[in-house]
Nucleic acid binder design. Structure first.
Length: 434
RNA sequence: GGAGGGAUGGCAGAGCGGACGAAUGCGCGGCUCUUGAAAAGCCGUGGGACUCCGGUUCCCGUGGGUUCGAAUCCCACUCCCUCCGCCA
């Protein structure tokens, strides 16, 4: 969530910043009003509380000096004040809850340099890359044999079995088989080993507490998007960002330990509630997929370079895989709630002729850190400060799988995979029909 | 799942109804001594909210309760440890 003090001190700036992403001014106004009300009630409560405490001390003194009458008198007075205090406290708490709820629903302030815009159409394409670009090769025009969608290739080669996946779990739960399954394992190993030089490998839980989902901003606003295990009140994570943000929840880190850089592979679960029927063929949009995530807790000063490093690593993987991709600077209208600045990486899949989002690299400033209460103690002295969090996928495999298979399809129907994966594919990078 | 024990500051660990946000030790920071370092000694050292910047208030796993007053008593829950059972 955003800093309530910003609303208090410069409401105009907050209203303007949130207005860039379509938040109505009344929402900010409401938060400001609740905050003022809350502070007034808190002051009242604390004054009463201070009086009760002072009287209680006098009760003890009177009793020690044997003056029972005075003690009784004082304790009666204290009891009456105590009742008042409880009422004032309950009122303050009620307002506090309203305030927290309102604040939890406010999105993050966009970064100053995030482009303005109303929606996906206003995102800015920063650059496009394809194999051989630097050597003067023109932007690829897909060959005829590449114009086959991955769901058909998957069936031809026996490496993707969507019908049987649906039998087990319903539609949009893919089942990979044979070399198709092995390809996923290869991608994960390849990526994790590439990131091992700077990022600690983590294997977190994939079912988490409500608090953990709230820390990243996935709750309370987007509960429809997540799978919920009711009996145990646990949530299936939509991304490793969720557990990783809570890894240091409630902690005060030493500045010398920052940045803390983590990488994790997890299953990711998304209900895709609002997207019924849109781009749902094959692996374009699935309820369960595997993703390698890069994550960092940083000081505010380190955040920009940590953000850039994750973008560079995600791009590095795409380049190693020889995929045609582009980098988008998300406009204010398309930014995720918790993010101040996001770069999306989209890969071109020639078979279905679509740009597929395979990574979203975001800088959250202290928005998530405030929710999760992750702070650090500055080396130069002074009180604890909130860390910044930064994360991005490198990468989401389902769509990479689709793009690889479509891009690598040969005239004879076989699929050539990039050499960098050979060590995990048993040395064989060509997939042929069984 | 059953039976016991526990949860206190960065860490260890006292406190078990009245000035306790909390002894002591370690750690950390500063100073003295020293050519420098170590050792020794002295001083300081949790977090949050509000503030008329004087202070006020909250936090001893979490949430309730008892009381004039709760770290301390009661109830529930969570987590950790030991033992038993079950189990990939």
């Amino acid at each position: 969530m955003i800093d309530i003090r910003l609303v208090r001190d410069d409401r105009g700036a907050v209203t303007a910043a949130l207005g860039r992403r379509g938040v109505a001014a009344v929402e900010v106004e409401r938060v400001a009003e609740l905050d003022a009300d809350h502070r007034a009630r808190l002051a009242r409560r604390e004054t009463l509380r201070a009086e009760v405490k002072a009287l209680s001390r006098q009760v003890g003194d009177a009793r020690r000096s044997g003056d029972e009458d005075r003690a009784r008198e004082l304790s009666d007075a204290s009891r009456r004040l105590g009742e008042e205090e409880r009422a004032a406290g309950a009122a303050a708490d009620a307002v506090a809850r309203e305030l927290t709820t309102a604040l939890l629903h406010l999105p993050n302030l966009p970064a100053d340099d995030a482009p303005d815009g109303a929606g996906p159409d206003d995102n800015v394409i920063l650059r496009t890359w394809w194999p051989g670009k630097d050597g003067g090769v023109p932007e690829p025009a897909p060959e005829r044999h590449q114009r086959v969608p991955h769901w058909e290739i998957g069936e031809e080669l026996g490496i993707l079995d969507l019908a049987r996946g649906a039998r087990m779990a319903g539609s949009m739960f893919p089942l990979y088989r044979g070399m198709g399954a092995r390809l996923l394992r290869a991608l994960t190993s390849f990526a994790l080993e590439r990131h091992a030089d700077g990022y600690e490998e983590i294997r977190p839980p994939t079912l988490v507490l409500t608090e953990t989902m709230t820390s990243t901003g996935h709750l309370p606003k987007f509960s429809d998007e997540a799978y919920h295990v009711e009996r145990d009140d646990l949530w299936a994570i939509p991304t490793a960002e969720v557990p990783l943000t809570s890894m240091h929840r409630g902690e005060i880190l030493a500045e010398a330990d920052l940045p803390v850089r983590l990488t994790a592979v997890t299953q990711c679960f998304r209900r895709e509630a609002g997207a019924a029927g849109r781009d749902t063929r094959g692996l374009l949009r699935v309820h369960e997929f595997e993703k390698v995530e890069l994550f960092a807790y940083t000081t505010p000063e380190q955040a920009p370079s940590a953000h850039a490093d994750i973008v560079a690593r995600a791009e590095g993987i795409l380049q190693a895989l020889g995929l045609h991709y582009r980098v988008l600077d998300l406009c204010t209208g398309d930014l995720g709630t918790s993010s101040a600045r996001t770069f999306d990486l989209e890969v071109y899949a020639p078979g279905c002729d679509r740009w597929l989002e395979v990574s979203s690299v975001s800088w959250f400033r202290d928005y998530q850190a405030r929710r999760a209460q992750v702070r650090y103690r500055p080396s130069g002295g002074g009180g604890p400060r909130l860390v910044h969090t930064v994360n991005g996928s490198a990468l989401a495999w389902a769509r990479i799988w689709a793009a690889l298979v479509e891009t690598g399809r040969q005239p004879d129907g076989s699929v050539a995979l990039p050499d960098c994966l050979a060590p995990w594919l048993g040395g064989d990078t060509v997939l042929v029909a069984r």
